[in-house]
């Protein structure tokens, strides 16, 4: 019975401590203090642990996931089983490396075309789905020049913004999170509005500022880029898939599918220096159909080329060949 009473007392104490933490956190976030003591301490301590875990686990994970595709490959394996298994192991690893290199290339291309200066980082941890928050952890932090409220991109487009920073890790809020809002602009027009996350993996909501604006399915969105705001201008956000409401109706909004798949994030870049001029639509990929709407305006196309020599290079010093090649590609 004493054991029982002691258990109950300790249980009650633990519940009380938990409730106190909740109240303290509510009070802190109401006052706008994001990086509270305990979370900051946990970031400093567990960030490197997560990075180490990820470094160990990721190559294993990629070899394991490639095992699934073995059965669909050639049948001649049966004869030289051991030799082929070894070769396949090597192939799986270099497939993984090729993938990473392609992601990095794409990221540097976007950075070069838009003249953003990015710090590449890898996603090492993701928040659990039952927390309803879409957040990820990167393995770069304040030591790499990352600060809170910087935009995060991949070669495909906008990923989100940095919520908080530790010495060697950073927490990113994805655009699809329901508390995320980005100023957006429709491609090749001056229509602006707000792109909000809905907590859904592949849908954002775009609310137009002008209810009479003409937008249609298939229009693409880039970030608007308020001066001094969080998101630099010109980063691709997504494509409009449906428009609800009629022109003039008070609630006129569109569904947008983001360019970036939030469940397949691996290599991302944090924009540490925004471009000096607005890249307008030059970062959007050329549309495969005949629509001329992706031609960048003459003012914007003039500036990237002479700047290619001082163009964005990541702080890891990766190839400077791609930004200048990309800048010349955006010329016409």
């Amino acid at each position: 019975m004493r054991e029982n009473r002691r258990t109950r007392v300790i249980f009650g104490v633990l519940l009380l401590i938990a409730m106190t933490l909740v109240v303290l956190d509510l009070r802190d976030s109401a006052a706008g203090n994001d990086e509270g003591g305990i979370r900051g301490f946990a970031t400093r301590f567990f960030g490197p642990v997560e990075t180490a875990f990820s470094a160990v686990v990721t190559p294993v994970r990629n070899v394991v996931s490639s095992i699934g595709s073995w059965g669909s490959k050639d049948q001649r394996i049966a004869d030289l089983e051991a030799e082929n298994a070894r070769l396949r192991g090597e192939l799986a690893t270099s497939d993984y490396d090729r993938n990473r290199l392609a992601q990095l290339d794409k990221l540097m291309h976007l950075a070069g075309v838009g003249q953003y200066r990015v710090v590449p980082a890898q996603v090492i941890a993701v928040g659990p789905a039952q927390g309803f928050a879409w957040t990820v952890t990167l393995d770069a932090g304040s030591r790499d020049g990352i600060k809170a409220d910087q935009a995060v991109v991949t070669g495909d487009g906008l990923v989100g913004r940095v919520l908080s920073v530790g010495p060697s890790t950073a927490t990113v809020l994805l655009v699809v999170d329901s508390t995320s809002t980005v100023g957006g602009r429709v491609e090749a027009s001056l229509q602006i509005g707000f792109v909000s996350g809905l907590g859904k993996e592949s849908e954002l909501s775009f609310q137009l500022r002008d209810p009479f604006a003409g937008i249609k399915v298939g229009d693409r969105l880039v970030t608007f880029g308020v001066k001094g705001g969080v998101y630099p201008p010109g980063i691709p956000v997504g494509t409009i898939t449906s428009v609800k409401g009629t022109p003039g109706q008070l609630t006129r909004y569109a569904s947008v599918v983001p360019f970036v798949d939030p469940s397949a994030l691996d290599l991302v870049g944090v924009v540490v220096v925004a471009p000096r001029t607005d890249p307008r639509d030059s970062v959007l990929p050329v549309r495969p159909t005949t629509s001329p709407s992706t031609t960048p305006s003459p003012a914007a196309s003039g500036s990237p080329s002479p700047r290619s020599s001082t163009s964005s290079s990541s702080s890891s010093g990766s190839s400077s060949a791609s930004p200048s090649a990309a800048a010349s590609k955006s010329g016409p």
Binding site: L26, A42, G47, A125
Partner: peptide, 10 residues
Amino acid sequence: VVPPSAGIVG
């Protein structure tokens, strides 16, 4: 508290 947490602590 471990990153990337974003909910209410506790």
